[in-house]
């Protein structure tokens, strides 16, 4: 029996005396398109770092494809798209080189060569940046850069794609293109997608499931349509602005 891509069971974590995560439990099944939302300070970033194996939980466990994150040998099965602000702003690198970096571990990091051109072309075409292959990353718009980072994550052929605040600072048009890329991944490539964000406007209608983290606890885990049915109201001030949570919890 195949292990689910992602399982968190009773995950707790504290920074000093402050409890940041408290018994977080969820499971993401193969092929699901799931969002993890929550206001600033809810613990999303800490939970993400635990899921990626950068932090050890104080209690509970995380399993990625059935093993602890740090024990996963085939790391290429995880495609990770960081926040765009973490990328070196004026890095003198071409789009093709950035995308090819996604293949380094699957090919063997000690090997020379650019990687399989067909795979790189496919990854770039999937997110609509193939025509930018020869351009410098620093010359692109924020939305284009974000799609390049998604192509980089796709280059390894991941089975689980985790994205961290992918639309932060991205214009509305690019968000639409970004949404198309994710939907294609989830529906056509049958990849499992976990989107960590507090801005869900672009993909809200395509999600299979929405999890909401508030003060370190999962307060909601169901389809987006059920969210308002629980009595939790959404305070959306304008299109694409953060999802604010009010009401119980």
């Amino acid at each position: 029996m195949t292990s689910p891509p992602l399982v968190a069971a009773g995950v707790s974590f504290s920074y000093g005396h402050g409890r940041v995560l408290d018994g977080v439990t969820f499971e993401v099944a193969t092929g699901e398109f799931v969002a993890l939302a929550g206001p600033n300070g809810s613990g999303k970033s800490t939970l993400l770092r635990i899921l990626l194996g950068q932090l050890r939980p104080a209690a509970g466990e995380v399993r990625i494809f059935g093993v602890a994150p740090r024990e996963l040998v085939e790391r290429w099965r995880i495609g990770y798209v960081p926040q765009r602000t973490e990328i070196v702003e004026d890095l003198p690198a071409s789009v093709r080189e950035v995308v090819a970096a996604g293949q380094v571990t699957r090919r063997g990091w000690w090997r020379r060569g650019l990687g399989d051109p067909a795979v790189l072309d496919g990854a770039m075409e999937a997110v609509g940046v193939a025509h930018l292959a020869g351009r410098r990353l620093s010359e692109l718009s924020g939305g284009e850069q974000q799609r390049v980072l998604i192509a980089k994550a796709l280059a390894s052929g991941p089975e689980l794609l985790i994205l961290d605040e992918p639309v932060a600072g991205v214009d509305a048009e690019s968000q639409g293109l970004f949404r198309d890329s994710l939907v294609w991944l989830a529906r056509e490539r049958h990849a499992t997608v976990l989107l960590v964000s507090h801005e869900l406007g672009a993909v809200a209608e395509d999600l299979d499931r929405l999890m909401v983290l508030k003060r370190g606890r999962i307060v909601f885990d169901d389809t987006p349509e059920q969210l308002t049915a629980t009595g939790v109201s959404l305070g959306v001030h304008a299109h694409d602005l953060p999802l604010w949570l009010e009401g119980p919890g």
């Binding site: 194996g53 950068q54 290429w76 990770y80 960081p82 990328i87 070196v88 380094v104 571990t105």
Partner: peptide, 15 residues
Amino acid sequence: FSVVLDEESARVAGL
């Protein structure tokens, strides 16, 4: 280059 591009992603990828 992968490390320079994004050290966190490089760690996640197993470099």
